[in-house]
Amino acid sequence: MRPSRLAIPLYLLLSLVPIYWLVGMSLKTNEEILGGFSLFPRAPTLANYVTIFTDPDWNQGYLNSLTYVGINTVLSVLLALPAAYAFSRYRFLGDTHLFFWLLSNRMAPPAVFLLPFFQLYSSIGLFDTPWAVALAHMLFTVPLAVWILEGFMSGVPREIDETAYIDGYSFPRFFLRIFLPLVRSGVGVTAFFCFMFSWVELLLARTLTSVDTKPIAATMTRTVSAAGMDWGVLAAAGVITLVPGAIVIYFVRNYIAKGFALGRV
């Protein structure tokens, strides 16, 4: 038990080092970042953050990203729950093929697919709306959600379903009152992963928006200018983009950590 007690703090510490570097960079001027090595910022400055917070483009980008990521996460989990239940409990025509096909949609390299995506969403009038990005991201978050949830649901013994039906539960009531609490660790990670993958995706989000709903990741590319790269502002933007995800994982952590409470049903 002794070495394993040390392993986690050690790993977490190591994994924090690059993040420390990101935070450090965000507090430095570009001259200091490129000028030489310094473990701590010599003259910590909030100028980079001021640049971001006083520019409406950055704020708007932040809100735009949160909007489509929010739509995506909620819809993905809601749609995936019944589907994952079906896959984990029943055989039906074409089930295994369908299951694998879902995931195969993650396997297309984006570079060439961007143009048809642009054409598709323009033709139905969704271009430059949060719905376009949310729908496009659902192409890979929904299959992911179905796969993860199916794995957790298959771990729940089927006797529980049968006992509930014998006790006179209807399907919706059984699903919400008994089944969902049993797979809440799965729902927690699923929600987090949908959020995460949609939040960090850049190519589709940038292609499907232009002015009104430009995501924060697209605003970030503006830090590359003719004068070179604005490292400090980019690092500050990176720090700010960490915040929503950290809040999400903080709220779902209980669902992840509590897991299966079979004895307490």
């Binding site: 993040i19 960090v200 980019l234 983009t241 995800g245 994982i249 952590r253």
Partner: peptide
Amino acid sequence: SLVVLALPLLIPWNVVGTI
């Protein structure tokens, strides 16, 4: 631990490369 563990996942990919 869970929050710290998840932090690297939440950084946009272009920023990961930049760091």
